[in-house]
């Protein structure tokens, strides 16, 4: 009896190992949190320096259309107007999402509803392969194929929003497709059965029941694709022309936050206005990706409520 009491009160090896494991995984988590926090701190401290150390007006930064941080603009202030890049980033993000969405939904419907076997065997691996291709490859093909095509078809130099849209469309299509397919697969089978048993055709079932039920998941897919498009730097930089001008049509050279950032960051001195202004661009990017994340979480939570039974 006392032996059992003693053994119950003794610290066993099992509890020790368990505690060690707990500490180990907790410290991994802490490291990641620390890294995220440091990134935010660093970007914010550099990015905000533009406004607090160099005394640039925030509104001027967001709405100015002249970008040449080393020099003084027409209003006597340093020319740090980020509007052209902000507009460029948003335009190619929205356009590529608009172009990619119908293709992605069509492919996803084919993959999951119309030909699930071929979808699983061929289309899905191919789509996943496309996700893994490095962006420099996309950019290079864009430079060699899309830019001349745009130049010959629509005029202009070929560099610009339109070329950027085409390249990003191909880049985000696989992501949006495979996530849409996941969303469609997650629609319970009994929805389809219920609809078919009522004499609805397959198309009516897909269009009226399955797609409707998958809307939150597909919105998430689209926003995810937009986040990727917004953050893509290299491929876009290769085809957009990188002129810090407010785009007045789709085939004139333009620029995005990312393309200006990657082009400029190596040529500036830490702590200078030029450098700080670039960090401010990075801050906008970070805030935007945060926003995209929040939107995805919000949609995800709403979607869950819809499916609860």
């Amino acid at each position: 009896m006392d032996k059992i009491r003693a053994s119950l009160l003794k610290k066993s090896i099992a509890t020790k190992i368990e505690r060690r494991g707990k500490i180990l995984s907790l410290s991994c988590l802490a490291l990641i949190i620390l890294v995220v926090f440091l990134i935010f701190y660093f970007v914010a401290s550099r990015g905000l320096a533009t406004f607090f150390q160099n005394h640039i007006n925030l509104w001027q930064f967001l709405s100015g259309i002249q970008w040449n941080p080393g020099t003084v603009g027409s209003n006597g202030q340093p020319a740090v107007g980020a509007l052209p890049m902000i507009v460029g980033s948003f335009l190619i993000t929205i356009f590529s999402a608009i172009v990619a969405t119908p293709f992605a939904i069509g492919t996803a419907v084919f993959m999951t509803e119309i030909s699930p076997r071929r979808g699983a065997q061929i289309l899905r691996p191919v789509t996943e392969l496309l996700v893994g291709i490095p962006s420099v490859v996309y950019g290079f093909i864009g430079l060699q194929v899309v830019v001349p095509f745009v130049r010959n078809t629509f005029g202009g130099s070929g560099y610009g929003i339109l070329s950027g849209t085409f390249v990003l469309f191909v880049m985000i299509l696989p992501t949006v497709t495979s996530m849409s397919a996941d969303a469609l697969n997650a629609v319970p089978r009994y929805y389809r059965e219920a609809s078919l048993a009522l004499g609805a055709t397959r198309w009516q079932t897909i269009y009226k029941v399955v797609l409707r039920a998958a809307i939150p998941g597909m919105l998430t897919a689209i926003v995810f694709g937009m986040a990727r498009a917004f953050g893509e730097a290299l491929a876009v930089q290769m085809v957009i022309g990188n002129a810090t001008l407010l785009p007045h049509n789709l085939v004139s050279p333009a620029s995005t936050l990312t393309s200006i950032l990657t082009m400029g960051i190596g040529n500036t001195v830490m702590g200078s206005l030029q450098n700080n202004a670039l960090w401010s661009l990075a801050m906008i990017l970070l805030l935007m990706s945060l926003l995209f994340n929040l939107i995805i979480r919000y949609i995800g939570r709403k979607g869950k409520l819809n499916h609860e039974r």
Binding site: P188, Y190, Y191, E193, A194, S195, L196, A197, L198, G199, A200, T201, V209, A213
Partner: peptide, 17 residues
């Protein structure tokens, strides 16, 4: 599809849309 209009079905698990 027309045939299922005449021969309807109700499933084990309630499956309203």
């Amino acid at each position: 599809y027309e045939m299922r209009r005449h021969i309807g079905m109700v499933f084990q698990r309630p499956n309203p849309f």
